[in-house]
């Protein structure tokens, strides 16, 4: 079981908070707003941190298990044979931090198996492994 970071959002939020505080101007209002914003970003950081800790995936013999969520906890079990295709995406922010997301697609729209914040090498390894396993165990509809 591996835990992978997605705490990008928290950092960005902190930067925005800082710039906002600078432009605010007057003393007391600025101070309270800065405190507020830092509290908020702190809470956000805590939330994101937990979220990041909740993400996890487990490659089992016959299927892939993906879990995520803090408030609503989700656990998906996707058999390798059911994967239609595997996709790697990397948005601009993700690329900035050298991360990428692996997405598994099955014929069902509801089975959301997404593993974000992977190291590109790990993502490529996972994709190749999943594709190979999926091919070996492919089953028709």
């Amino acid at each position: 079981m591996r835990l992978i970071e997605i705490a990008v959002v928290g950092t960005v939020l902190a930067v925005i908070a800082g710039s906002l505080a600078l432009s605010a101007g007057s003393s007391t209002a600025a101070l309270t707003s800065v405190v507020c914003i830092f509290l908020c970003s702190g809470a956000a950081w805590w939330f994101v941190h937990n979220r990041f800790r909740a993400w996890g995936y487990l490659e089992r013999e016959e299927d892939l298990e993906v879990r995520r969520g803090v408030l609503v906890q989700r656990l998906s079990v996707v058999p390798y044979g059911r994967m239609q295709f595997v996709e790697i995406t990397a948005g601009p922010v993700e690329r900035l931090f050298g991360l990428s997301t692996v997405k598994l697609h099955t014929a069902a729209a509801a089975s959301d198996a997404r593993i974000p914040g992977l190291d590109p090498d790990e993502a490529a390894r996972l994709r190749d492994r999943l594709a190979a396993l999926g091919e070996a165990r492919a089953a028709g509809l």
Binding site: L71, V72, Q73, R82, T106, A107, A108, A113, L141
Partner: peptide, 29 residues
């Protein structure tokens, strides 16, 4: 044999009551 994936979802209220919902997904929306 048609199941595409199995999911367990637990919301905050369900966690307080020690409950969870299990989905058997099939192809389609």
């Amino acid at each position: 044999e048609k199941a595409q994936s199995i999911r367990r979802v637990q919301g905050p209220v369900q966690r307080a009551l020690r409950l969870a919902t299990v989905h058997v997904d099939v192809a389609g929306k």
